[in-house]
Computed example of a mutant assay.
Amino acid sequence: MPVETSLRTGHLRVADGNELYWEAVGNPQGPAVLWLHGGPGSGATAGHRRRIDPARQQSVTFDQRGCGRSRPLVTERLDLLDTNTTPAQIEDIEELREHLGIERWMVTGASWGTTLALAYAQAHPERVTGLGLFAVTTTSTAEVEWITESMGRVFPEEWELFRDSVDRLPGERVVDAYARSLRDADVQVRDRAAAAWGRWEDVHVSLGPGWEPDPRWHTPPTRDVLATLVTHYWSRSGFGGDQIPGRMPRLAGIPGVLIHGRRDISGPAVTAWQLHRAWPGSELVILDEGHGGPRSAAELERAIAAIAT
């Protein structure tokens, strides 16, 4: 009998009043590949469906808590924001895996999705057949400091505008001021902070070949969801990002490919390089791209074909 490979979708109720949108495509009996989107808060797209052989593999993704087609949106329930953490999302992933009846899967992701993928794999290495990651970050304190403070040395004009677009308390970091402003009771304060954050996001990913402004950063309510979740996670170093490098031995024996753009100034290649050195058997691919791009996507497809067998 022919294998049913068409798109399957649904919603899964998880903790703290959240309902996650998920989708799967390809062979339900084949090796599974999970895609974790970036942001946090960008939501999943249809791109994951093209990275597999649908007759042989299946691809799964979902909109993470508070964004995309999951409900409620973070901007609708700011009172739930403190329950939106990396450990909570790891539990969401496990609930989705069990809901779909998947024993083990390859975990893939980009940008923030690589942080979540690494944290999940370190928490549940027995459930991971391999990792395929591009635009690699661990959302560490040092990485957040670079992207929100030190990168002003590269873009001084834009950074000064970014810094001065929110009111800061004495000694308060820029990222903390934005996180606080995006939880403000005054909607005008939140709107101003979200717009300024979006402008800065466009600046620091602008050096890649073929770069164009990202419409998500200029289109409410998507912009507001993104800015709220990004600043929430970044101001807290990804709820454990500083611990990821020291936990790389937990991935021993798990194959992985780390793909990164040399021109990715918002996330310098040193993070991917250090993780590679701490992860025996991993592969590091450095490309002449920015924060992701078509060559990174092609390398991810190659990794999926090799690992998800």
Rank of each mutant, 00 (worst) to 15 (best):
T129I: 02
T129Y: 00
T129L: 04
T129W: 00
T129N: 01
T129A: 00
T129C: 06
T129H: 04
G130S: 14
G130N: 13
L131F: 15
L131G: 12
L131Y: 15
L131E: 14
G132L: 09
G132F: 15
G132C: 12
L133V: 01
L133Y: 03
F134P: 03
A135S: 15
V136P: 05
V136H: 02
T137D: 05
T137Q: 14
T138C: 14
T138K: 09
T139H: 05
T139R: 02
T139V: 11
T139G: 00
S140C: 09
T141Y: 03
T141F: 00
T141R: 14
T141E: 13
E143C: 07
E143N: 09
E143H: 09
V144G: 05
V144M: 12
E145W: 10
E145G: 04
E145M: 05
W146F: 13
W146L: 13
I147H: 02
T148A: 11
T148K: 06
E149T: 09
M151V: 15
M151R: 08
G152S: 11
G152C: 11
G152M: 11
G152T: 10
G152E: 11
G152H: 11
V154C: 12
V154Y: 11
F155M: 07
P156W: 05
E157D: 13
E157S: 10
E157I: 14
E157F: 12
E157P: 07
E157N: 12
E158L: 09
E158R: 12
E158P: 09
E158A: 15
E158F: 11
W159D: 01
W159G: 04
W159Q: 06
W159C: 03
E160G: 12
L161S: 13
L161Y: 12
F162D: 01
F162Y: 13
R163H: 14
R163F: 09
D164H: 08
S165G: 09
S165I: 08
V166R: 04
V166Y: 01
V166A: 02
D167S: 15
R168H: 14
R168K: 12
L169R: 15
P170M: 03
P170C: 02
P170I: 05
G171L: 07
G171M: 08
E172P: 03
E172F: 00
E172M: 06
E172G: 02
R173Q: 08
R173E: 07
R173G: 06
R173N: 01
R173L: 08
V174L: 00
V174R: 03
V175F: 03
V175M: 07
V175K: 01
V175T: 05
D176V: 05
D176I: 00
A177K: 03
A177M: 03
Y178F: 15
Y178Q: 01
Y178C: 05
Y178G: 00
A179Q: 07
A179M: 06
R180L: 04
R180F: 01
R180D: 04
R180C: 01
R180G: 02
S181E: 05
L182T: 06
L182N: 07
L182A: 10
R183L: 10
R183E: 08
D184C: 02
D184H: 15
D184E: 06
D184W: 07
A185K: 14
A185W: 08
D186M: 02
Q188T: 10
Q188I: 02
Q188G: 00
Q188S: 10
Q188F: 01
V189S: 01
R190L: 00
R190P: 02
